[in-house]
Structures are given as structure tokens and as C-alpha cells.
Design a protein around this nucleic acid. Structure first.
Lengths: 243, 243, 243, 243
DNA sequence: CATGAATGAGAATTCATTCAT
DNA sequence: GATGAATGAATTCTCATTCAT
């Protein structure tokens, strides 16, 4: 998608300029209240030029979408390919999306309205394609995490994806227009809910601590054995029982 | 919600007819591709009449929305007020919504596109109001369930709501146009994910209680720390044990 | 087509006004150089009103065409139904068309260009229907005349129609823009060509008569051989004569 | 007409290619629905190139027309210059045109619509010039045939031309889109109608013969003054009679 | 010769909406 | 309550055409 050759044709530069201004306008005014004329005028080119490059207004939105997802996907690829903890990479992936939603929700909102909730099949198909590619990265990680027991493995990966993305969207939508959205934070919480060892354990943890303290008190001991549940639904406790 | 007066004025009947056809048209063609003229024509009335009754096209959509939510809320009220298990009532509530989504997604889609993703503040406000009223029922139950330990209580109720509804929407959107949508089934799975005793804890809980009781007994104490999960299907095992 | 009820609705009056001005504009500027805007403006109505009444620009042309043919057909019906000589009625019919072509060729030219030579199937169908109805009158007379021997009966009626109308069109086209077109005269000649006893004979006939009379006088004879060709191919008599 | 120089310049080849595709497109889609862009694209050249060669879209149509008439005229010249019967040559000429109409009516239709019924004076002038040159051949033959008595000589040659071509056009137009058009056959019938000895003259002939016989008898002579219609299938009888 | 980019001037529509009757 | 007529503003999109390179 990025042309690595140095000299951008005049056409390519025009194209990029249009794209930039179009995105801005869609963000600010929404799709319906953006007119091709206004974009062209602001750039100082002819209206026809826009149509020559993008064919139609919705084609223009499509191109803006392409660019958005190209960038998003590149970032996501970096994260997914980074070394280290699968869970962390998954969290980073989600966080990257949440960050994006925080920063550019107005644009995402337009994509969503026109492509997914709209009636333009072409645009919808285009969005779906982007999404498939993008979500595949998550999918892979989800499966890995399920294998590791970090994510519950009886939940279909697609459902986990729906929960994460659906919830984030709902959250973003709820905070409509607020300047300081806390989407990232909430997105993180959503992941917490799904990650097994976080999944409501705190209370258990609390109780475990209490119990441990009682035990310690009763037995006169005091070590750090409480970080039980390293992987999730561990039969571990049974070991204690057995004892 | 239901007009208890018996003789529906001629005007009222016209109004109802318009509403019915408008809903149908919105469902089938979406908002933009529905014209007031086409609705009027199909009914055989004048375009002006529609405006007489609803003021504007978006007012008409608003009215369709009102009707939809009136019915939805009535159903929800019934469920919420039904006797029995809070969890079951919660599940029924969610299921009712999922059922609705399965049956009438095309209409919900229009509401969402125009009210939530759209730029009409009035319509959005109207939707928000309906949603608030509707979601309150869930909210209450969520809080109850958290108190009962069925739902993790460290997760803010609003987040749980966002997860449930967001996920369902995502699912519905994904199954676009498919005749046999499995929204209900998936919605149920979403709830499962959120309900604590499915989250891997049950075994732990049972053990914890046992352990704590034993300890208390051993230590000669008897506080109420165990009142956790009064409804949870977990206490059971312990009861058997106690016996 | 003509509404016999007296009070023309306001709508009907508007419609008629549009029609009148549209015809004028099509005549003067042709189809392409006529804009709906200019028509509306000249009348002092909104552009939208024109579209409300006629749906589209080509629908407007269609309506103009309808009116043209309605009038034409009415006239033709009168002529066809008038008492007297079939040949005369046929000639009058053709003459009426030629007169029309002389007076309103600019409009007919537009019909022809758009409906018959154009690419709008709807318009073409509309024209064809009018033409069918109109030409049927000629057809009937042609058949009658063939039965009477006035028109050669070995020529298919449709061909006679094609010759007459085709030739007139060709003539009209050739005299393009000339103010004093002699279409009627030429149309008459075309019919002469087709009518057997006129088929070029008149001048010859005159001479022949003269010659024959002189000869008879010179030879001292005096039979009735001059009533030649009262109906058509009368040469027969000569056989009798010979005898 | 044909470029006798052997090595066609690259430019010339491009020109020819454009011409060929343009003709094809005009035929298939008509003038309005043909875009210069589509032609260029199909050939794989730039839009500008087309304008380089033909100056304008209507210039392109003009060039296509030139080519068409060049070929047509060449054929016609051959026929007109062929040895033998004038009537036969006339018939062949008409037949060649009818054949052309059968084969390439879609293109002729475009010429007619744009040049003769259209509003482009330049194109019309161009067409008229071609037509003049082409029709002159017919004209000459018509006059010859009239002198020979094959065609009625009191009918102006121009009218005969209008009848023939007008009728053929009408016929072609009527058979719209039909795959097996019988234009040639009908065109032949049209000529039959015009050729004297078919046109009801036999009776006149009969009388002329009679008269001549009377004269001969009266004057005691017996020359070949009957040389009228040397080609006509009629003179014969008289010869036989004379014998 | 050829090109690719830019243009620009419409022009036809569409439709929600108003209002007198 | 209902209607029919009129509105009118706003917008997308089309394409032949030009021109610098």
C-alpha cells in the first residue's frame, strides 16, 4: 500500500492531499454533511479531480478507509510480531485498537455507519475484507492464549473477538463526544474479564489471603505461597485437599 | 403503551397504518432508501398526511422506534418482574433481546445507524432515553447478581452491559443477511462467560468454603465471610459434604 | 386524452403550461439544448414542479409527443371518417401529415431523433404505439384503394406506407430550415406516383387524348376510348377496341 | 481513399485502430453512450491521443463517417461503371445500399441521428457532401432511365431518390433489431414500384401501340419510333406485333 | 506522437417539507 | 384530518476537452 519509490507522481500527491482532507472532513462533519465540493474547494482543485481519482463519494470514503486500515494493520502486525508474552501482545493489540478508537472515533464512526450499518454493499465488502485481515491477528493470538489457558478455551475465539470489539464499540459510542474518553482503560477491563486468572479472582484472592493469614496465624507461618492459580482453572487446590 | 380507549379515532388508525408501513419500509430498504412518498403511496394516502402525523421523516422513524421500544420494554418488564431466580431472569432478559435481534435486526440496524451513529441529536436523545429505561432493568439485575456473586462484582455493571449488548450487536452484524441467525445461542454464551461459576471458579469456591469452614471450626471462629454466592450453584456440594 | 370536464385543476393548468413551453423549447433549441431549468424559469415555476408532473426530461418529451399525436390523430380520424371518395380521403390524410410536417417539422424532428433514432427504449415504444394507431387509418384506406384498383394491389400496404412516410421525411429533411417548404406539393407527387391512373400519365394522357382525337378525326372515327383509366388498369378496353 | 504508401506510420496505425473501435462502439452503444474514454481504454491508449487525431468526439464520428462513405462510394462507383443495362446498374446500386443498411444499420442510424437529425452543422455538412457525391451516381442513372422510359419521366429525379432512400430508411427503422432484416427484398420492391413497366404503364403502352398502329396504318409507314423502353420487358411485344 | 492529469460547467434529479383549501 | 400541488435547495456525477511534459 505504501509506495516505496521516492518520486511521488503529481497525481499521487494530489490523491494523497484529497485523502487527507477528506478524512478530516468526514471526521468533523460526518459523511452526509461532507460535500465533495467543499473538499475540492478547500484544497483548491476541481471537483472533477476528486471524482477522477476516486470515482464517487463513497469511493472516496472507501479510500480513506483503506488508508486507515493499512496503517492500523501495520501497527497491529508490529505488535503481533513483537517478542514476548502472548498475553501481553494480545493486550497490546487490543490496546492499540482502543487507543485508535479514543483518538479517531469520529472517523471510525463514519466507517461503521456507512459500511456496516449502511446500505452500500461495496463499501461493506471492503470493510469486511479489511476487518478479516485485521482480526486474523487477534484470532491467532486468542487461540494461542486458549491453548495456554490464559483465555477460557471453551469459548469460541470468534465470540471472544465479538465480545472485545463489540464492547469497545459500545463503550466508545456511550462516551460520545466526550473529549477525554477512557476507552483504553475500559478495554483493558474487558480483557481482564476474559483472561482467566483475572476473571473475578480478586475476591477469591482476598479470601485466599484471609484464609492464608488465618492459617498462618494458626500455624505460626508466613510465606508467599498465595500466588496460586498461575494458569487458570487449576486443579491445584485439590492437591491441598489431598494433603 | 397500549391505548386502552376502545374506539380508535380515524386519525389514530391512519397513524397506526403509517407506522406499520413505515417500519416495514425502513426494515426492507433502510432509512435513506425509504421515501415518505413511497410509504404514503403504498397506503394510498397523501404525503402531507404523514407529515401531519409525524412532523418529519425522522420524526416518523422516532415514532417507529417508540413503538418498538414500548413493546420491548413491556416484555422486559414482564421478565424482570417474573418470580424466581435473578440469574434466570437476567438470562431471560438477554435472551429476549437476542430473540428480538434475530427477528428484527433490520429494524434495529436502522435505529442504530440513524440514532446512534447518525448525526441527528434529537433522534439520538430519543434512543438514549429508551435505552436508559430499558437497560435499567438489566442494571438492577446485574447489581443483584454481583451481590450474589453470580456476576463478578469487581466489574462495573455498565461494563457488563456494554459487553453483553456490544457483543450481541457485533454478532448480529456479522451474520448479516443470514436467514438462520444464531444470535440467541451466542448471546447465551456471552452471558456464560460473565457468570462467575462458569468462569472456572466453582471448584475453587467449593473448596474455599470447605477450607474456611474447617479452619473456623478449628480456630473456633464463625463470621459471615462465607455468605458469598448465596444463589450460586456451588454451595451445594458443600452442603452435601456437611451432611 | 382531452378532459371534457370544465374546471381544469390548478395542477392540470400547470401541466398544460409546461407542455406548451416545453414544445416550444424543443422546437426551437432541440432536445439537448433544452434544459428543464430554462423551461421552468420561463414559466416562473420551480424546476421540481416539472419533474413532479413528468418524472423526467424524456418523460416531458414523451408528454409533448402524446399531445402532438393526440391532436394529429383526431384530425386524421375526422378525415378518414369524412364522406366521399376513398382516394380523396387518402390524399387528404397524407396532405394533413405533410402540412403538419411543413408547419412543425422542428418538433417532429426532435421526436424522430430521440424516439426512433435515439436509444431510449421507453420513448421509442411510446412513439411506436402512437404511430401504429395513426398509421392504421392509412392502412385501412390503402387496402380499400387497392381493392378499387386505385393503388397497385401487388404492393404490400406496409410498403406503400413506408414509401409515403419515408419519402416525406426525406423531403422534409432535405429542405432543412428553409422557411417555405414545399412538402405538401411533393407529398402529393409521391401519392401520384403510387396512384395508378396518375402514375405519370396526366401529361401524357393529355397528349395522348389530343393525338388520338386528331387521329380519329383525321381517320374519320370516333369511339369512346378516351375515357381511359377511370379506375386503373383500363388498357383492357383496347382489346375490345381491337376486336 | 486507400493509402497507397506501404509502410503505415505508427500514427496512421493508431488512427486506424481508433477508427475501428470507435465505429464498433458507436454501433453498439450509440453516440451518446459512447465515451471517448471508453474507446481509449479499450485500445489501451490515452484519451488525449484520440483528440490528437480527431480533434473532437464529433470529429471522430465524422472520420468514421468518412471511412464508411469512402467504402460505400467505391462500391457504388464500381457498380455504376459496370457495363450493361442501366436499369440493372440502378437496381444494383440500390441493392448495394440496402445490403449495407441490412449489415450496418446501427452505424447508419448513428450518422443519421447525429448528422441529419442532430444539431451539429459541421457534421451535417459533412454528411451532405458525402451524400451528394454518392447520390449523384443515382441521379445520373435515374435521368438515363427516365430518358429510356424505364422510370417515369414526369417525376423529378430528386423525388425518385427521396422515395427510394426514404422508403428504405423507413423500412430499416421499422425492423429494429430484427436479426434477419429483409431490407434488400423490400428495397427491390420499391424500385419495382417506380419502374415504369411495372407501374401500370402497360395500359399506356398498349395505347401507344394502338396509336402507333393507327398512325402507321394511316400513314402507311413502319419505322422504329417505338424504341421507347429499349430495355423494358415491354418493347418486345410490339416488336412481335410488328412482325 | 503520446500521455496523464486536471478541469469545469453543467444538468438532471431527488425529496423532505410547506401550505392553502 | 386530509390532500394535492408546489417547492427549491443542494449534490453527485459525467465527460469532452486542454495542456504541459
Amino acid at each position: 500500500m505504501a509506495d516505496s519509490s521516492k518520486p511521488p507522481t503529481k497525481g499521487a500527491r494530489t490523491r494523497a492531499t484529497i485523502l487527507r482532507h477528506a478524512a478530516e472532513s468526514f471526521r468533523r462533519d460526518g459523511y452526509d454533511d461532507t460535500t465533495v465540493a467543499s473538499i475540492a474547494q478547500k484544497i483548491g482543485i476541481s471537483e472533477g479531480t476528486v471524482f477522477q481519482h476516486f470515482g464517487s463519494k463513497s469511493g472516496l470514503l472507501g479510500a480513506v478507509m483503506d488508508e486507515f486500515y493499512a496503517e492500523l494493520h501495520a501497527t497491529a502486525l508490529d505488535i503481533a510480531g513483537s517478542p514476548g508474552d502472548a498475553e501481553q501482545r494480545f493486550r497490546n493489540l487490543i490496546d492499540a485498537w482502543a487507543l485508535r478508537a479514543e483518538r479517531d472515533w469520529d472517523l471510525i464512526r463514519v466507517f461503521t455507519q456507512r459500511a456496516r450499518y449502511g446500505t452500500d454493499p461495496e463499501l461493506d465488502a471492503r470493510w469486511k475484507e479489511h476487518n478479516r485481515r485485521y482480526t486474523r491477528l487477534h484470532f491467532d493470538l486468542i487461540e494461542q492464549l486458549q491453548a495456554q489457558g490464559v483465555l477460557k478455551d471453551q469459548v469460541p475465539p470468534a465470540l471472544i473477538r465479538d465480545i472485545v470489539f463489540g464492547a469497545i464499540e459500545h463503550i466508545a459510542l456511550g462516551q460520545d463526544l466526550s473529549p477525554h474518553m477512557e476507552i483504553r482503560e475500559k478495554a483493558n477491563q474487558v480483557v481482564d474479564v476474559l483472561v482467566a486468572h483475572h476473571a473475578g479472582q480478586p475476591p477469591i484472592d482476598g479470601r485466599l489471603e484471609r484464609i492464608e493469614r488465618k492459617l498462618d496465624a494458626a500455624l505460626g507461618r508466613g510465606d508467599g505461597s498465595v500466588k496460586v492459580m498461575p494458569e487458570g482453572r487449576t486443579g491445584d487446590g485439590s492437591a491441598a485437599e489431598r494433603a
